[in-house]
């Protein structure tokens, strides 16, 4: 909250990027970085589970049977591009160009939706081939790890849409700027997580 007068080392109002204008916004950005650290450990636990269980295919298919190079490569490039467009949105925000900022957010959301669509179709194909969560420890770990990331991205899409609406209603203010900045941090973080899913799940699967 706004406890302006006793915040240590806060920037005085107006200096620095717009999202840091008010001290309580600065606190929230800091809090969100700490949240990212917790989310990192959450994914670490899922990666650890996957790493321990990925050879435990039971009677089900292994990674090579179900991973489709074109599919996961496409997903990767879509998400990388969305991270770029999300960065451009923050760039426009810092230049005060609300129109461009919102436009890049829309592009990011659309890329996010297409990423989720590709992922869902990948899952549906797997399930149609009999590779489900219930098949083996490997598939349980696979669906949970990749699905948790997908759930994060889906939440990010909803969240970014809400921020977009608030930008339209309330204009670009220090508060809306902070909200947009925080969701952009979230989005870039999810991109980092995906890079490791791409490497440890998919590329390692291709190597097996």
């Amino acid at each position: 909250m706004a406890m302006a007068d006793f915040l240590v080392k806060a920037p005085s109002a107006g200096r620095g990027p717009i999202e840091y204008t008010h001290e309580d916004d600065a606190l929230r950005i800091f809090g969100f970085w700490v949240f990212i650290a917790t989310d990192m450990v959450l994914f670490a636990s899922l990666f650890a589970t996957y790493a321990v269980l990925y050879r435990h295919v039971g009677h089900g298919p292994g990674p090579l049977q179900i991973f489709d190079v074109t599919g996961f490569a496409t997903e990767t490039f879509i998400l990388l591009t969305s991270s770029f467009t999300c960065g451009l949105s923050t760039y426009s925000m810092h230049r005060g160009q609300k129109g461009w900022m919102m436009a890049w957010m829309v592009v990011t959301i659309l890329l996010g939706i297409s990423f989720i669509s590709f992922e869902l179709s990948e899952f549906i194909t797997d399930v149609a081939q009999g590779a489900t969560l219930q098949t083996s420890a490997f598939l349980s770990a696979f669906f949970t790890l990749v699905g948790t990331h997908g759930a994060h991205v889906s939440l990010g899409i909803v969240w970014m849409t809400l921020i977009l609406i608030q930008l339209a209603i309330r204009d670009l203010t220090p508060t809306t700027a902070r909200k947009a900045f925080v969701v952009s941090l979230y989005w870039h973080f999810l991109d980092i997580v995906w890079i490791f899913i791409f490497t440890i799940v998919y590329l390692l699967g291709e190597m097996s």
């Binding site: 915040l7 080392k9 806060a10 920037p11 620095g16 990027p17 840091y20 001290e23 600065a26 950005i29 800091f30 970085w33 700490v34 990212i36 650290a37 917790t38 990192m40 450990v41 994914f43 670490a44 636990s45 990666f47 650890a48 589970t49 790493a51 321990v52």
Partner: peptide, 28 residues
């Protein structure tokens, strides 16, 4: 490093990366 959370968010990420590596490597 002109942001108010400097450098604490970098510490937290560093600790996060440390524990991430620990949890994955040690679990294996």
């Amino acid at each position: 490093h002109h942001v108010p959370q400097w450098p604490f968010h970098v510490w937290m990420l560093t600790l996060g990366v440390t524990f991430t590596i620990l949890f994955v490597v040690a679990s294996i």
